[in-house]
């Protein structure tokens, strides 16, 4: 809205006599007008029933299931409280390896994305005209909406034996890395890169240019200005981006199925236990791992103000 005069876009004609059939609604509306708390309660009711009761309830039920187990004979869920699943999860070598591998992949993907995203966001925010900025933001954001599956699939095609990457690397005497953990990290970094660029860009855009000038006037070289001024002030934005890259990587099981070869992540364990193994309680137990990690992460970064940068 660019107008400076406070004219409403659709001026309301003073209605002296409301139409008759609207009378009940009108009196309800004036009743509500005098009771802001009731209005608030009504506004919040439906979203809270949906998210607070249904969604949180589902999460709570899932967490309860994690303490149950399946009867090995009938395959039915037995509702007895036991820590057996958690014991298996922590003591079994296989699951420990998979958990650590998943966290490692998520951390690596986050790091790669932060390193790639920062210079891109910096150029967008500081060296481009407002018009170019707007176009660039759309350019970064649009691929985010192209199907996740399609992008993972595209990497599968590109990484294949006679695919594009092979063709690109051939002049350097290199081969495509093929399917495996490296391919998984590459694909995930690619998938979540825009999630990192956009918050950092927003953070840098809010950073006043005068601070950079001041740093320069006080004799700071670009690297020093980056380290002492830019990085501390945009850290919450980087953390905001990392919430996405980290969380999305933690729960992923499709990319690793498509480009990861035989490797497994936590998501695959959950998926296999729901499907083939039909062990819902153990799947629930494994699923609590990313949730606990994410809740811990969210609680830890709350103080940095990162959540306001989402």
């Amino acid at each position: 809205m660019t107008t400076t005069t406070p004219t409403p876009p659709a001026p309301t004609p003073p209605a002296p006599a409301p139409p008759r059939r609207g009378r009940a609604l009108d009196s309800a509306s004036s009743f509500l007008r005098r009771r802001p708390r009731l209005r608030l309660g009504l506004l919040l009711s439906a979203p809270m029933l949906w998210l607070g009761l249904a969604y949180l309830g589902a999460l709570a039920a899932l967490f309860a299931t994690a303490f149950w187990h399946t009867d090995s004979f009938t395959g039915q869920v037995v509702r007895e409280w036991t820590l057996e699943n958690f014991r298996t999860l922590f003591t079994d070598e296989v699951y420990r390896t998979i958990t650590l591998r998943t966290i490692g992949i998520a951390a690596l993907v986050t790091l790669i994305d932060a390193v790639l995203a920062f210079p891109m966001a910096f150029v967008m925010a500081k060296f481009c005209s407002p018009r170019a900025q707007r176009i660039l933001v759309i350019a970064v954001m649009t691929p985010l909406w192209a199907s996740y599956l399609v992008k993972a699939y595209s990497w599968r095609v590109m990484l294949s034996g006679n695919g594009v990457i092979d063709w690109l690397l051939a002049p350097f005497g290199l081969d495509s890395p093929g399917y495996g953990l490296l391919a998984t990290v590459l694909t995930l970094s690619y998938l979540w890169l825009p999630y990192m660029i956009l918050p950092i860009y927003a953070g840098l855009e809010r950073l006043p240019a005068s601070l950079l000038d001041a740093a320069g006037d006080l004799g700071a070289r670009p690297w020093r200005a980056f380290r002492s001024v830019v990085l501390p002030l945009t850290f919450p934005a980087i953390v905001a981006g990392s919430i996405f890259t980290f969380s999305l990587s933690l729960g992923d099981y499709i990319s690793v199925r498509i480009v990861g070869g035989a490797n497994q992540m936590l998501g695959n364990v959950v998926y296999d236990n729901i499907g083939a193994a039909n062990n819902l309680p153990f799947a629930a137990t494994v699923a609590t791992v990313p949730v606990v990690i994410m809740l811990g992460y969210l609680a830890a970064v709350r103080r940095t103000g990162a959540l306001d940068n989402l």
Binding site: L56, A58, I274, V291, L307
Partner: peptide, 28 residues
């Protein structure tokens, strides 16, 4: 807390939302 709750379905890994709802629909 409510604004956090609204973000939660996207902030949590999709697989968690998926099996939580799957479990809620089928067993609960």
């Amino acid at each position: 807390s409510i604004s956090l709750l609204i973000i939660l379905p996207i902030a949590l890994p999709g697989i968690v939302t998926g099996i939580a709802l799957n479990n809620a629909f089928r067993t609960v």
